[in-house]
Write a protein that binds this DNA or RNA. Structure first.
Length: 409
DNA sequence: TCTGGGGTCCTAGGACCC
DNA sequence: TCTGGGGTCCTAGGACCC
């Protein structure tokens, strides 16, 4: 047997993955749902999360809700509630920070935790430490998680998936090969369908096959991300640990049914996405210097454009003109569309004004938005919104001097 | 996996400069 | 007004992730 790394724990990286997270949050907040066949997913849409009971009945993620109901008529379908999931997520990360100050919030329901050197402090093995974390989350949040521990991030990912749900798997450096031989190449984090089919042509079918390939082969056929994965599989840390930084882009997308080619409708959908993404940017205290839009046609083609903004902004009223311009660059009435999306990027912390902008006007708009965000924070989301931005499509005038407030508290 | 929504990172190639 | 090579910045598009 080949040994890929001789040391058992040069460092200890844990990967935590919540089990059926969205559904678990629903079950945690409504105990009556526990032990039942539950799915999260919009009516007419697709299933995005399933309880293990529902999985056992043969319902799969990505299925149409109607299909899921046919397979198991007793299934309970819930509307997704991302605010709740976000709250559980925050509390889960807070628990993790009690164990180690160094954590990477990888997604709402996943985190990497650097446990290196903590055995002495907790007077236990890494496996036992993972067990304590798992217990704490279960007791405090009623959420079940699986944890994998190994010496690199890619291996920790493999470990957390090895036994699920409610698993604890530790892969020390000297046992890597025992695990990798059971992992199909397409199941490795970061290897997608394209790369998997390329590798299979060279007879690489498992993670172990890949790890045992020589470096020249890897450098000849693959690019940087895959070289990193290759190193990590061999037990050599190569992918940075990222402690949370602010987002690099903010987007909002929404599909609708049936598809439409009506200009004013498509534009109003874009405007909604613009408002939502701007609101999110303001929550992070960020301003966008680039605006892109995406239109998805009914046959799933993507049309997109990007525009540079004269000054960074997170205020819909200041971006509406740009939105209109980019929209007419790609909108073609002969297609029909099923989704629009807005992406804000080039995000900057401080809002800078170019010399050509009317500073006073900008500041007035900023203060109105600040007041609005404040009201929404105190009285709940969507208590207040700006009237002018929703129908500015109809009146093709420039940005109004003072936006109107529509208050519906 | 017949299609929801939100992200990240990398590469190739063009523009522009010296 | 001929022509080489190198650096940097930006953009579009691909691949992948949850």
């Amino acid at each position: 047997m080949q040994v890929l790394s001789v040391h058992s724990w040069p460092q200890a990286i844990a990967h935590l993955d919540a089990d059926a997270f969205f559904v678990s949050c629903e079950q945690a907040s409504r105990p009556a749902l526990r032990g039942k066949c539950v799915a999260v997913g919009k009516e007419r849409g697709i299933v995005i999360a399933l309880s293990y009971e529902a999985k056992a009945k043969g319902v799969k993620r990505g299925m149409f809700v109607s299909e899921a109901k046919r397979i198991y008529p007793g299934i309970i379908i819930l509307d997704s509630n991302h605010e709740t999931y976000g709250l559980f997520s925050v509390r889960m990360f807070e628990i993790l920070k009690r164990f180690s100050p160094k954590i990477e919030e990888y997604s709402v329901d996943e985190a990497f935790i650097d446990l290196t050197g903590l055995r002495r402090l907790y007077a236990c093995s890494y496996r036992e430490l993972a067990l304590k974390i798992q217990d704490t989350i279960e007791k405090e949040l009623s959420i079940s998680v699986s944890i994998g521990i190994s010496i690199t991030k890619v291996l920790a990912k493999i470990a957390s998936k090895y036994k699920k749900p409610h698993g604890i798997t530790a892969i020390p450096g000297n046992e890597i090969h025992l695990y990798l031989s059971n992992i199909l190449i397409e199941d490795v984090w970061g290897i997608g369908p394209n790369t998997a089919s390329l590798l299979k042509k060279f007879n690489i079918n498992t993670a172990l096959d890949f790890a045992l390939k020589n470096e020249n082969f890897v450098k000849k056929y693959l690019s940087k991300p895959y070289i990193q994965i290759y190193n990590e599989l061999k037990g050599e840390p190569s992918i940075d640990f990222v402690e949370k930084i602010s987002p690099k882009s903010i987007s909002k997308a929404k599909s609708f049914y049936p598809p439409s080619n009506e200009e004013s409708f498509i534009f109003s959908e874009l405007l909604k996405n613009l408002k939502l993404s701007c609101a999110k940017a303001r929550r992070f205290n960020l301003a966008a210097s680039k605006l892109s839009i995406f239109l998805k046609t009914s046959d799933f083609q993507m049309l997109s454009v990007e525009a540079k903004l004269s000054s960074p902004s997170a205020m819909p009223l200041m971006l509406t003109e740009s939105l209109r311009e980019v929209f007419f660059k790609i909108y073609k009435p002969e297609y029909s569309y099923r989704q629009t999306a807005v992406v804000l990027s080039g995000l900057t912390e401080k809002i800078q004004y170019s010399l050509f902008d009317d500073r006073a006007k900008i500041e007035k708009i900023v203060s109105v938005y600040n007041a609005m965000d404040d009201i929404n924070r105190r009285f709940g989301r969507n208590s207040v919104h700006l009237g002018a931005s929703s129908d500015s499509y109809v009146h093709k005038e420039r940005t109004p001097n003072l936006p109107l407030l529509n208050i519906k508290v």
